[in-house]
Each structure stands twice: as C-alpha cells, then as structure tokens.
C-alpha cells in the first residue's frame, strides 16, 4: 500500500487520532444513553429497541467494530515500530521526566485493559441483545430466566447487582479515564490542532471529557448496585 496513512509515521498517528476521536464520540453517546436508565427503564429499553438488528444499527456496530479493530491494530503496529526504534540495548536506569503523565507512557497497556473490559461488556450485553436478534432470536437466558433482547434495563439491573461485575467495570472505567486524559488532547495534537496557548485548554478538556465519561458510566453501575444491595431496604428504595 502506498498511502501516507499506512506508510508514514504521522499518517499512522492520524489514523489513531481519527479512530480515537470517533470512539470517544460513541462513548459519549453510549454514556448519555445509559443515563436514561437511571430515570426510566422504559425509555432505556426504547433506545435498546432502536439499536436492535436494524440495518442502521448493524452498520453502526460494524463501523464501531472496524474502528476498534483499526485503533488497536494500529496501536500494535506503532508500538512494534517504536519498540524496534528504541534499539536492542535498553537504559539501565530510567527516571520519569518532569511533566510527563503516566498515562501517556502506558497507552497500550491501558488500551489492552479497555479492550478486555469491552469483551467482557460485549458478553454481558451485546451477546444477549443485538447478537440474539442477528441470530434470529428474541430472548436469552439471564439469571435463570428468559429476558427479551430489547430489555436492556433488566440486563443492567442484573449485571450490576453482582459485586464482582461492579469491580471489574470500575477498573475498566478507571483505565478508560487514564486512556482518555492523554488520548483526547493527543488527538488534537496529532491532527495538528494545538499550540502552546491551547495545551492547557486541551488538556483541561481531555480531563473534563475523561471524568465526565467516567462519572457517567460509573454512576449507573453504582446506582444499580446500591439499588440491588441496599442494606436498609434490600433493593426496594
């Protein structure tokens, strides 16, 4: 392939930047969607219905899968290049340079954690919703009973009533938070839309976006966990 998006370092980074940007936008959408579950199970399930095995939802899902694949494949490719560029002999002593964030140096590790979390998440939700519809079914077995593929609210209720899921999801969100604190401003930098005046603003924006996403997701998880395990009312409140 003779395209700068594949054979130049800056081009490859642009692919990371754009795919990352699209994924951030999706996550923001997903987060807003989740928040509706706090207020109304019906509203949430209505959205779930819209995102069943419809052609637009399927195209969207395929697109997302492609984005995740590209983002991850390029990450591996870039990391491999970078590993080779460091040479065979490593520094015996390394010290963290002042002002360099931990996240920025561990994006791949964070990315892998995010990806593992994603796989878990897909088995919890997507495999019981859109996948069921794609396979032609309408319900699946959850917690010993059949649940409709469009009943996302029930899946949420059940999944987050389990403490270990809550822990795993929170770890996942923390990793995502770190990943985004670097990733969000970095995508502007890679696209060339940054300068010394804007760095503080972009980094602030990155922190806001990352924190917003963390809180938006975490609040749903915790809300449903508390709801299911509340010591005072046993889940009735």
């Amino acid at each position: 392939m003779n395209c700068f998006l594949y054979n130049s370092s800056v081009g490859k980074k642009l692919v990371m930047s754009i795919s990352g940007c699209a994924l951030v936008l999706f996550i923001l959408f997903h987060m807003s969607m989740n928040l509706t579950a706090l207020f109304s199970a019906e509203a949430y399930n209505m959205i779930c219905e819209l995102l069943g095995a419809n052609w637009y939802a399927l195209v969207g899902t395929a697109g997302l899968a492609a984005l995740v694949f590209i983002h991850f494949a390029y990450a591996l490719l870039l990391t491999w290049n970078n590993y080779r560029a460091r040479g065979t002999q490593r520094y015996a002593v390394t010290t963290k340079e002042p002002g360099v964030s931990w996240a920025s140096k561990n994006m791949l590790v964070l990315g892998v954690i995010v990806l593992l979390g994603l796989l878990l998440h897909l088995t919890h939700f997507w495999a019981k919703m859109q996948l069921v519809e794609i396979m032609g079914g309408h319900e699946s077995m959850v917690d010993g009973k059949m649940v409709a593929a469009t009943d996302g609210a029930e899946l949420i209720r059940y999944t987050f009533s389990q403490w270990y899921n809550v822990v795993l999801y929170l770890v996942w969100f923390v990793a995502l938070w770190f990943h985004l604190t670097h990733g969000v401003w970095s995508m502007f930098q890679t696209a060339g839309w940054a300068n010394d005046t804007w760095y503080p603003r972009l980094k602030c924006l990155a922190n806001i976006v990352a924190t917003l996403i963390f809180l938006g997701f975490a609040v749903v998880v915790i809300f449903f966990f508390v709801k299911a395990n509340c010591p005072c009312c046993g889940g009735c409140c």
Partner: peptide, 22 residues
C-alpha cells in the same frame, strides 16, 4: 523530512512530551 525520519528507523510520536521536558 518525515519520510527520511521514518526510513532511518526512528519511532512514532505518541505525544508523551518527554522530549520537550528533556
């Protein structure tokens, strides 16, 4: 210059900012 840099085996920038710090 970018093409030459890539050809010579330098890595890809991941915006850590360590270069600027050092």
């Amino acid at each position: 210059m970018v093409a030459k840099m890539d050809e010579l085996g330098f890595g890809n920038c991941t915006n850590t900012g360590a270069c600027q710090a050092e």
